[in-house]
Simulated scan of single mutants.
Amino acid sequence: MEQQKLRELLETLHQELGQLGTVDEKTGEVLATLKEDISKLVEGGDEAAAEESLTERMNDAVDHFEEEHPRLSMMIQHVLDSLARMGL
């Protein structure tokens, strides 16, 4: 059940990332990395999610988007919470 919920959160987050308009260079880099990470999680499941650096990158993204894109930041945090509940 938790796996399905995570997949749904990741798909929603991926859609939100795709809807962002013009962004600065740093935000573009963060977005590209997040999209790649999300694709790996959706396709690879637990194995891709187990990387510690993935959690770090997602935490960095939460911090980066917190001020200008609070909804996106909140969604990323939900994904991180789901990963933590799954022990990843």
Score class of each variant (00 low, 15 high):
residue 81 D to T: 14
residue 45 G to D: 05
residue 23 V to M: 15
residue 65 F to Y: 10
residue 9 L to I: 07
residue 24 D to R: 09
residue 12 T to V: 15
residue 11 E to H: 13
residue 88 L to S: 05
residue 48 A to I: 01
residue 17 L to E: 06
residue 38 I to Q: 00
residue 87 G to K: 07
residue 54 L to A: 11
residue 55 T to Y: 08
residue 37 D to R: 04
residue 33 T to H: 07
residue 75 M to K: 14
residue 16 E to P: 03
residue 18 G to M: 01
residue 59 N to P: 15
residue 66 E to R: 10
residue 44 G to I: 00
residue 83 L to P: 01
residue 8 E to C: 01
residue 30 V to Y: 02
residue 83 L to F: 03
residue 84 A to D: 06
residue 79 V to E: 15
residue 6 L to Y: 04
residue 30 V to W: 03
residue 41 L to C: 04
residue 11 E to Q: 14
residue 87 G to M: 03
residue 57 R to C: 14
residue 79 V to W: 11
residue 14 H to S: 13
residue 7 R to F: 03
residue 27 T to V: 12
residue 53 S to D: 07
residue 30 V to E: 04
residue 38 I to D: 00
residue 23 V to H: 08
residue 19 Q to M: 10
residue 74 M to F: 09
residue 8 E to F: 07
residue 16 E to V: 06
residue 11 E to C: 12
residue 29 E to L: 12
residue 81 D to W: 11
residue 11 E to T: 15
residue 51 E to Q: 08
residue 10 L to R: 02
residue 33 T to D: 04
residue 77 Q to V: 06
residue 38 I to S: 01
residue 80 L to H: 08
residue 3 Q to N: 10
residue 59 N to K: 15
residue 4 Q to H: 05
residue 82 S to V: 05
residue 56 E to P: 09
residue 85 R to V: 12
residue 56 E to R: 12
residue 29 E to R: 11
residue 77 Q to G: 11
residue 13 L to V: 12
residue 23 V to S: 12
residue 30 V to K: 02
residue 23 V to N: 10
residue 18 G to R: 00
residue 2 E to I: 12
residue 62 V to R: 01
residue 61 A to C: 08
residue 49 A to V: 03
residue 71 R to F: 10
residue 53 S to N: 09
residue 60 D to E: 15
residue 48 A to W: 06
residue 82 S to K: 11
residue 41 L to W: 00
